[in-house]
Simulated scan of single mutants.
Amino acid sequence: MFDVELLSILLPALVAGLLVLSTHVLLGQQVLKRGIIFIDLAIAQVAALGAIVSHIDHRVEELPFAHVWMPALFALAGAGVIAWMAKRLVGELEAFIGCFYVLSAVVAMLLLANDPHGAELLKQLMSGQILWVSWSQLALPAVVSAGILGVIIAKPRILDGAGFYFLFALVITLSVELVGVYLVFSTLILPALALNKYQGKTKLVWAYCVGIVGYIAGLLLSASYDLPSGAAIVATLALSALLFRMLLKLRSPASAHQPAK
């Protein structure tokens, strides 16, 4: 049985996970539909690069909310580059996005090579520290997530155009700050992949269920056995996605074998 102190840690972490899921499940399905799987890793890595630049330049670091707007500027610039490539590199886009990710990761490593706290910062950006998220950190992501969901509901076609890349950049920027690069990728891809072959009307509902089960199980596992929270949630998200995919296939074998639209 969990005590009050542990619950006070788990509840903000769970809310952070739900905020990330609220937008990532929708965007993840679009990523899979477009066949640009590496875009989330690439944009997340570019946003992390912005955070690193802010960290190593103390003049920037001391500016108000630099930890938010600097990664956002880098992510938006990265989204612009990918949107440009999407129009001119048809058939090779995924490969170029993969290269974009690798180059961003290498630049980050080079910038932190001589920083005494570089390894710790890099680990934090990659794996995240969701278990230590505070309520005050959730205010901005909640407002932005609500705004983006409102835009998508009002103008769903925005996901089919170039505007998708810029919405994606804003979402990823805040998510990396909360949960880290690895969990951002997993939250986008695993629920979408779990439901990729399912064509029922409740597809989106099931996708959210995959994510919610994965986050709750991962947080409980992390808290119970003192495991890294990001890694634990990635593992339970993967397991949740696999179980839901198998269960839905058994539940509706005919629709499960239909190709995704």
Rank of each mutant, 00 (worst) to 15 (best):
V151A: 11
D115G: 08
F164L: 11
V144F: 13
L103C: 08
G163D: 10
V102L: 15
A169F: 01
V102S: 13
F168K: 04
M109S: 04
L110Q: 05
G118N: 09
I158M: 15
W132Q: 05
P141D: 04
I158L: 15
L167T: 08
A108Y: 04
A139M: 06
K155S: 13
V144C: 05
V143T: 02
P156S: 14
Y165H: 07
V133C: 06
L111W: 02
I130S: 06
S104F: 09
V151L: 14
N114E: 08
L138K: 02
V102Y: 08
A154P: 09
G147D: 08
A146I: 09
S104D: 02
A169L: 02
S145W: 01
L121C: 09
F168P: 05
Q137V: 00
H117Q: 14
L112N: 01
F164H: 02
L125H: 09
V143A: 13
A108M: 08
M109K: 06
L149D: 04
H117A: 15
P141M: 03
H117W: 14
L103N: 05
I153A: 15
A105F: 11
V107G: 04
I158Y: 11
L159P: 12
L125F: 09
I148V: 15
L121I: 04
Q129F: 04
G118E: 10
A146S: 12
F168G: 03
S104K: 03
Q124M: 12
L131V: 03
A139V: 06
K155N: 11
Q124C: 01
D115F: 02
A108W: 07
L122I: 00
A113R: 07
V102H: 07
Y101K: 01
L122K: 10
P116D: 05
L167P: 04
A105Q: 09
L149K: 13
S145Y: 07
P141H: 06
Q129W: 02
